[in-house]
Design a binder for these strands. Structure first.
Lengths: 149, 149
DNA sequence: AGGAAAGTGGGGAAATGTGGGGTGAATTGG
DNA sequence: CCAATTCACCCCACATTTCCCCACTTTCCT
């Protein structure tokens, strides 16, 4: 099971490629290191799952969705935006155009490791997202680190 | 389960490395001695968790967050600042740049062992922190040690 | 006192992040 | 249906950072 963490800003080159931060790559099962599934995230970002984590997610979805109208809609939306991507020999990810547009990614990508997946943000959008939240880091962390236990 | 205690001041070398005080190292499960997770603490300091303690914390995070919008924010905030770090053969920790900047650590680090984790402070900031507190140690201690019983 | 461990410093090899060229496949438009 | 352009993917290049190892001094322990 992966456990992505940390954050970093990387450049997108003229061809739309970005390196996956190596500290995140190291958290992936070796067999799954070459293939990612990139999909549209919640909020204005992309989610990248290494293949093994994606399979886990897909299995969850298969088992938990009934055939309600709502579920069908969710699955369609999710799958519509999901693309399987191979890393090149330098472990770079070619971001599919439609997803790049959706996340408004231009020259730079802000990566965040979020446990089972990696998020890709446009740095500006991420700043805005943070600014839109009133909670401070302290408040959030007290809850989990300081709080109970 | 670790139980860190005590404090010490150490130098950061030109490459950003500090030794982990050996008395604290001794409190770590042998399997977890090589890897730490460093993250942003409350107040202007860093927290370093040996891998086993971190896993405990991470499990809490995974289980206590649903996929609500607020939870996503929590997890992002926390994970954004968490970095996994390997100690070198001399048991030194390479402090990630972003965290070093955040904690304003320059030449020296003040270590405090705090039960399940180790805190890293800039010595100056720690002094300021103490000064900013009006409660004396006696007052606080009465609360916890003297209190009931 | 002697040996071991702890704390500090630094050199050099390997890995990382970034750039670009070239070749074939796929897409588009005439 | 073919030609022109774009696109995806292979390879090579190179500066910088990271990591691994060796070395020296001081402190601690028996």
């Amino acid at each position: 099971m992966s456990s992505f963490k940390g954050s970093d800003t990387y450049t997108v080159d003229a061809k739309g490629r970005v390196s996956i931060p190596s500290k995140m790559r190291k958290n992936i099962e070796p067999e799954a290191r070459q293939t990612f599934v990139v999909t549209r995230g919640l909020e204005k970002c992309l989610h990248a799952y290494p293949l093994d984590e994606w399979k886990r997610l897909e299995a969850d979805i298969r088992s938990s969705t009934q055939s309600s109208e709502k579920d069908r809609f969710f699955v369609r939306m999710l799958m519509q935006w999901s693309e399987e991507v191979q890393l090149d020999s330098q472990f770079r990810l070619l971001i599919p155009r439609s997803l790049m547009d959706f996340a408004q990614i231009k020259k730079e990508v802000f990566f965040i490791g979020v446990l089972d997946h990696i998020e890709l943000w446009d740095p500006g959008n991420f700043k805005q997202y943070l600014a839109s939240k009133k909670d401070t880091y302290e408040k959030v962390a007290e809850h989990l680190i300081g709080g109970q236990r």
